[in-house]
Structures are given as structure tokens and as C-alpha cells.
Design a protein around this nucleic acid. Structure first.
Length: 371
DNA sequence: CACTCGTGGAG
DNA sequence: TCTCCAAGAGT
């Protein structure tokens, strides 16, 4: 092990650090739905939803999800479309598919019991180093590190570690550190407390050191460098893509939607037909030609720029120009396309940008009906 | 390792 | 408006 790291770890009184941290957690921990009990399935679902997602955002999704899929079996036997719909708006949709895939694996290979050891639980889809440690410690009380962004931030300050936490290699260093000082009497509370501290007290830009329960153990506080840590390199700027999106209506008031590929961005989500714009070419003409070529739809242009919609991803920006056309000849239906009315469109899973467009479409058709 | 993969909220 | 983000994992 890194000698410098070992030296810093030895400076910490691990026993008292754990006691101070866990005592604080017992007093200050938030009441959250996934803390009602230690059901491994409930813990598991919460950890997947919480990946890269804020607690306040997750809570309503979690409550609905547990009501709809209360057990391993309920989720294992559910239609994949229902799971994706329950995930709509939460983002990172492969989490939903991987979770259901893994739950089916638990049902078939582990008699419906979530594995309680590192090797087996890590083999499940969507369960990486963090989630494996989180479930093992929180649900089963095992002394495994669960190193997320909070833990790296907190421990970078406690031990004054200036490794770039954006680099994959640094996570292992923090795992080593946590493993060395983990509170064996209560690994569940210890790990949760590290994260809770990061979320509530030891925050990224303005840590509240004056009310920190482990201030006396903190190297960064002693040095006055808490605002300089952790070191985190910036990610590259997002690219912008110009899209043309088409509201194609037939004479029954239904609109055409298509399903995205089962791999990649927004996998398996439903959307209005969209494609990358060719610069300098008439937009309305591109829409008509695209529908003909990719969906065997014949249509006449109604409005080539009915609205615009931006969709901002972490690594990408879509600038969408939405046009409307009237269909004169309908395509043969496939698994990848279907016609839906205002009621039916609410039941499919769409990304936020297309959901906003769908809502606007609904408003416009309701106005037409009033006339 | 570098890149992909969402979203809504905070500063 | 812009930047950064929040309990990461898959490829």
C-alpha cells in the first residue's frame, strides 16, 4: 500500500472516529423511505435509484416503485415496459433494465434471496463496487467499503488526499482508506454516516466544519484546506446536435411514435420520429423525406417549425425543431412504431424532451376541439 | 482509462 | 445563463 496513505490513516484514531461519526448519525439521520427496514431488496432498489441522483428526486420515484414492485418476484415478473415507465424522468434508464435483469437472476439462481457476499452480488448487472459495498454493509452488516462521491469528498478532507477523484484509480485508494478505518461494530451506520455527512455537512463548496462531528479528526480542517479539497478535474464540454422532430398525425387524431434502439442513449424509450438535421436543406422537406424513407409514411407538411425544444444531457445537447405533418398514407406497423392518442401516449415511457412536446401536442389538440 | 449514459436544482 | 453537480456502472 501507498506509504504516505498509510501514514495518514494511522494518524486517525479509527475507533473514536467511528464512534463520533456513528453517534452523530444516530441523532441526525434523515427519515427516508429506504431506511424503514433492512430488506435487501429495498436497499438495493434505493441504491440503484440514488446513483448520480439526488435524494429529493428519488423519494417519490422510490415510493411509487416499491408500491408497484414490492418484492424481487413482483419486479422479476413485471413487463419491462412497466419498469421503464416507472423510471420515466429519473434518467440513466439502463439502470432500470439492468435492475430487472439482475432481479430475475436473483429469482432464478439465488431462490429470490439477494446474495450476501461480494463475489455473487458484484456479478449482478448494475451492481458495481459502490453498490455492492452499500448493500452488503447496509442490508447485511458486512464491513465492506461503499465509496461514492460523498465518501471520496469526506475522506479526501479527513486524510488530506489530493488525488483527482474524477479518475477511476482514486476510488481504490479511498476504498483502502475506508477499509482501514471502518467501524466494525456497525458498518451499516458507518457507511451511511459518511455519505450523510457528505450530503449534509461536508458539502462540496461550503462545508459546515463548525458543526462537523469529526472535525477533530480532519486533516484538511487542521490545515485550513477544506475548501481546496477534493481535487476534481473538469469534464469536457457537451456537443450540440441539431435534430428535426415530427408530429405526424393521421385522420383519426392519432400521432406516430417510434421506439429507440435497445442499446445506447435513451434505450427503448418512445419518441416522436427524430433525426439529425442536414444543414442548409429545407427542414420541412427533410421531415417528409425522412418519414417516407424510414417509416414508409406519406405525409403533407402542415408546419415545419411548430415549436422548438432543447434537451440537455451531461455529454450532449439536442436542439430540436419540431414540425407537424398530416399523414396521407400509413405505414405497416412494427414493434418499433405505433399510433397513439392523447390517452395512450401518457402510458408509454418517453424522455423528458419528448414528454414536453407530447404535453404541448395534447394542449393544442384540446384547443382545436373547443373550436 | 476515457467515454457514454439523464435529469432538475443549486449557486 | 452558465456551471456543476448527485448515494456510479457498462463498455
Amino acid at each position: 500500500m501507498n506509504e504516505e496513505l498509510e501514514k495518514r490513516i494511522k494518524k486517525v484514531n479509527a475507533k473514536k472516529f467511528g464512534e463520533d461519526l456513528v453517534s452523530w448519525f444516530e441523532q441526525e439521520m434523515r427519515e427516508l423511505p429506504w431506511r424503514e427496514n433492512r430488506d435487501p431488496y429495498r436497499v438495493w432498489v434505493s441504491e440503484i435509484m440514488l446513483q448520480q441522483t439526488r435524494v429529493d428526486t428519488v423519494i417519490p420515484y422510490y415510493n411509487r416503485f416499491m408500491e408497484q414492485f414490492p418484492s424481487v418476484e413482483a419486479l422479476a415478473f413485471a413487463p419491462e415496459e412497466d419498469v421503464l415507465k416507472a423510471w420515466e424522468g429519473l434518467g440513466y434508464y439502463s439502470r432500470a433494465r439492468n435492475l430487472q435483469s439482475a432481479v430475475r437472476e436473483v429469482h432464478e439462481s439465488y431462490q429470490g434471496i439477494v446474495p450476501d457476499n461480494l463475489k455473487e452480488i458484484s456479478s449482478l448487472k448494475g451492481v458495481g463496487p459502490y453498490t455492492a459495498g452499500a448493500i452488503l454493509s447496509i442490508a447485511y452488516g458486512k464491513p465492506e467499503p461503499a465509496v461514492d462521491g460523498n465518501v471520496m469528498r469526506v475522506m479526501s478532507r479527513i486524510l488530506s488526499i489530493d488525488d483527482d477523484i474524477a479518475k477511476p484509480a482514486s476510488r481504490k485508494k479511498f476504498e483502502t482508506a475506508v477499509r482501514a478505518i471502518i467501524y466494525e461494530e456497525n458498518p451499516s451506520y458507518f457507511n451511511q454516516a459518511l455519505m450523510e455527512l457528505g450530503a449534509i455537512v461536508c458539502t462540496p463548496t461550503s462545508p459546515s466544519c463548525f458543526l462537523c462531528p469529526v472535525q477533530e479528526h480532519c486533516a484538511a480542517f487542521a490545515e485550513g484546506t477544506q475548501h481546496e479539497l477534493p481535487v476534481k478535474s473538469k469534464k469536457k464540454a457537451a456537443k450540440t446536435v441539431e435534430l428535426l422532430t415530427v408530429i405526424a398525425e393521421n385522420n383519426k387524431g392519432k400521432v406516430l411514435i417510434s421506439r429507440r434502439p435497445e442499446q445506447g442513449l435513451l434505450a427503448n424509450m418512445w419518441e416522436f420520429p427524430s433525426f439529425e438535421k442536414t444543414p442548409g436543406v429545407n427542414a420541412g422537406q427533410q421531415m417528409i423525406e425522412y418519414l417516407q424513407a424510414d417509416h414508409e409514411v406519406e405525409a403533407t407538411l402542415t408546419d415545419e417549425k411548430w415549436m422548438t425544444q432543447d434537451h440537455i444531457f451531461t455529454h450532449l445537447v439536442w436542439k430540436m425543431q419540431v414540425g407537424r405533418v398530416t399523414v396521407t398514407k400509413e405505414p405497416a406497423l412494427t414493434e418499433q412504431i405505433k399510433w397513439v392518442d392523447q390517452t395512450e401516449i401518457e402510458k408509454v415511457a418517453m424522455p423528458v424532451s419528448h414528454r414536453k412536446i407530447a404535453n404541448r401536442w395534447k394542449e393544442s389538440t384540446e384547443k382545436e376541439t373547443e373550436k
